[in-house]
C-alpha cells in the first residue's frame, strides 16, 4: 500500500465560517509535501483533523486505512504550531515520556540532536526560551521513526542557522516508507526540500502538483507562483 493519507470531501466549519471546504487529497509515501497557503487558509485545521484533535464536520479522512485513532497515532508524528510541553518537566524527562508512549521513538537520536543544537537535557522546560522549546518539540517529533510526519510551521520561530539544521534533519529522516507534510508560509526557505506542493485557499485545494511540474508548466519558482496565486 503506497497511499499513506487519503481524504474525501473533508469539511470543517467553526460556527458559520468554513475552515475546510470539500478537500480531496491523496498523499503517497516517500514524498515531502508542502502544504502552503496564507494565514487562515485551513492548513492548521487540516493537520489537526489528521491528528484527531478536531472532528470533521463532514467527509472522511483515512491514514494508512484508518480513521484517526490509536492506530494512526502510533504512526503519525505531529509537530503542532503551539507549545504543548508542560513546564514542570526536564528535557530528559520529556524524552523519557516520549520513549514510554511511542514504540518508534529513539532516545539516542534525540540526545544526539540536543547535543548538536546545544540544549542541555537537564534544563527545565520552563526555563527554555520560546525558540528553544520549539527546537525541543521538533527534536522529539523527528526522533520517531514514524510513517507520516505532520509538521505545522516547523521553522517559524527558530533562527536561520537552526532552520538549516532542521531542514537537514527532515531530509535525512526521510525514507521510502514515510511521508512528510510541512505547512508553512516561509516558502523560499523550504522550497528546495519539497517534492509536492498543495496550495490551500479559503479551505479549498487550489493546486496540487509536484515541484517539477510547477517549474515546467509555469516556468517559475514555487515562491513566485505562491505570490501570484495569493496576490492581495
Amino acid at each position: 500500500m503506497n497511499t499513506i493519507l487519503e481524504c474525501k470531501n473533508l469539511s470543517k466549519s467553526f460556527g458559520t465560517t468554513k475552515a475546510l471546504d470539500g478537500v480531496n487529497l491523496t498523499i503517497e509515501r516517500g514524498r515531502i509535501i508542502g502544504l502552503l497557503g496564507p494565514n487562515g487558509s485551513g492548513k492548521t485545521t487540516f493537520i489537526k483533523i489528521c491528528n484527531g484533535l478536531l472532528t470533521p464536520t463532514s467527509g472522511e479522512i483515512r491514514i494508512n486505512g484508518f480513521i484517526p485513532g490509536v492506530e494512526t497515532k502510533k504512526i503519525v508524528s505531529y509537530l503542532p504550531e503551539k507549545n504543548y510541553l508542560n513546564d514542570w518537566m526536564k528535557v530528559s524527562q520529556i524524552i523519557r515520556f516520549f520513549q514510554d508512549f511511542y514504540a518508534d521513538f529513539s532516545p539516542e537520536k534525540a540526545y544526539d540532536m540536543l547535543k548538536r543544537l546545544n540544549i542541555d537535557p537537564n534544563s527545565r522546560l520552563k526555563t527554555l526560551s520560546k525558540g528553544t522549546k520549539e527546537k525541543v518539540q521538533l527534536i522529539l517529533v523527528m526522533s520517531r521513526a514514524a510513517e507520516l510526519y505532520l509538521l505545522d510551521e516547523p521553522i517559524g520561530g527558530v533562527d536561520p542557522a537552526a532552520r538549516d539544521y532542521i531542514l537537514d534533519t527532515i531530509i535525512t529522516n526521510y525514507n521510502e516508507n514515510a511521508a512528510v507534510i510541512l505547512s508553512t508560509h516561509l516558502i523560499s526557505d523550504i522550497e528546495k526540500v519539497l517534492d509536492d506542493i498543495v496550495f490551500l485557499k479559503e479551505g479549498q485545494v487550489v493546486l496540487n502538483k509536484t515541484v517539477d511540474e510547477i517549474r515546467d508548466e509555469y516556468g517559475k519558482s514555487v515562491d513566485a507562483l505562491f505570490r501570484e496565486v495569493f496576490k492581495c
Partner: peptide, 16 residues
C-alpha cells in the same frame, strides 16, 4: 492537560 495546549500532546499519544 487534556483540553488546553497540553492536550495537543496527550491526545496524539497512541492511547484510548
Amino acid at each position: 492537560n487534556l483540553l488546553g495546549d497540553e492536550g495537543y500532546l496527550m491526545f496524539t499519544l497512541p492511547v484510548q
